[in-house]
Computed example of a mutant assay.
Amino acid sequence: MSIEAVREYFKKWHMEDRIQELPLSSATVEEAARALQCEEKRIAKTMSFLVNDQAILIVMAGDAKIDNAKYKAQFHTKAVMLKPDQVVGMIGHPAGGVCPFGIKDDIKVYLDESLKRFETVFPACGSRNSAIELTLPELEKYSGYCEWINICKGWE
C-alpha cells in the first residue's frame, strides 16, 4: 500500500484529485511545511504505536509531542512506537508517509486535541512526498477515527 492505495481509498468520495504529490520530500514535519509552504504546526503528523501488540495511529499537530503520562493514562501502557521496519507490514504505508487513509482494517485511529485549533490541516497520503489539505470534519470522516484524545504536550 502507498499513495496508490490512498488515491484508491479517496475515489469513493471523488477526493483523489485533492491529493498533492510534492516535488520535495514531506517525510518530516519540517520538510512537509517547507514543501506545502505552511506553518509546521498545521502538518497533521501520524504516529504509529503498539498497544497490547496491536498497532494504533495517533494524528497530532506538527508541533505536538507525546506526553508520556497522558499516553499511559489513556492507553494503560507505556508509549512504544513501531520500529521503521514494522510500519509497512502493520500499517500499510512506509515511515515518512504514514497516514490514516487506506490502512489495514484492524488499525484504530485517534485524533489528538492539538489539531482542534486549525480550520485545515495537512496529513500525508501514503508516500514521503504527498499530502492533502482537510478540514477537521473531513479528517474525522476520512480517517475513520475512533475518538479525540488529549495525550500531547508542547503545543499549548
Results as ranks from 00 to 15, higher is better:
residue 83 K to F: 00
residue 45 K to I: 02
residue 78 K to D: 03
residue 62 G to F: 05
residue 109 V to I: 15
residue 107 I to T: 01
residue 77 T to H: 05
residue 50 L to H: 09
residue 105 D to A: 13
residue 55 A to N: 01
residue 52 N to S: 15
residue 108 K to H: 15
residue 112 D to T: 04
residue 108 K to F: 14
residue 63 D to L: 02
residue 108 K to E: 15
residue 78 K to Q: 04
residue 95 A to L: 10
residue 78 K to P: 04
residue 92 G to Q: 06
residue 96 G to E: 02
residue 112 D to R: 03
residue 54 Q to F: 01
residue 60 M to F: 07
residue 54 Q to L: 06
residue 46 T to L: 11
residue 98 V to P: 05
residue 95 A to N: 12
residue 49 F to S: 07
residue 89 G to D: 02
residue 73 A to N: 15
residue 88 V to I: 14
residue 95 A to P: 14
residue 88 V to H: 12
residue 112 D to Y: 05
residue 91 I to Y: 07
residue 97 G to D: 13
residue 74 Q to A: 12
residue 64 A to P: 00
residue 73 A to R: 01
residue 76 H to E: 06
residue 87 V to R: 09
residue 105 D to Y: 13
residue 106 D to A: 11
residue 57 L to Y: 11
residue 49 F to I: 07
residue 50 L to S: 12
residue 69 A to H: 13
residue 87 V to L: 00
residue 96 G to Y: 11
residue 48 S to Y: 02
residue 47 M to E: 10
residue 46 T to C: 08
residue 112 D to G: 10
residue 47 M to P: 10
residue 111 L to F: 12
residue 69 A to V: 15
residue 95 A to T: 11
residue 55 A to K: 14
residue 84 P to V: 00
residue 90 M to I: 04
residue 70 K to E: 09
residue 47 M to R: 13
residue 68 N to R: 03
residue 86 Q to A: 09
residue 94 P to A: 00
residue 104 K to N: 15
residue 104 K to Q: 13
residue 82 L to A: 05
residue 52 N to C: 10
residue 91 I to V: 03
residue 72 K to M: 14
residue 91 I to T: 01
residue 52 N to D: 15
residue 101 F to G: 13
residue 107 I to S: 10
residue 78 K to R: 13
residue 90 M to K: 13
residue 105 D to G: 11
residue 57 L to G: 02
residue 69 A to Y: 11
residue 80 V to I: 08
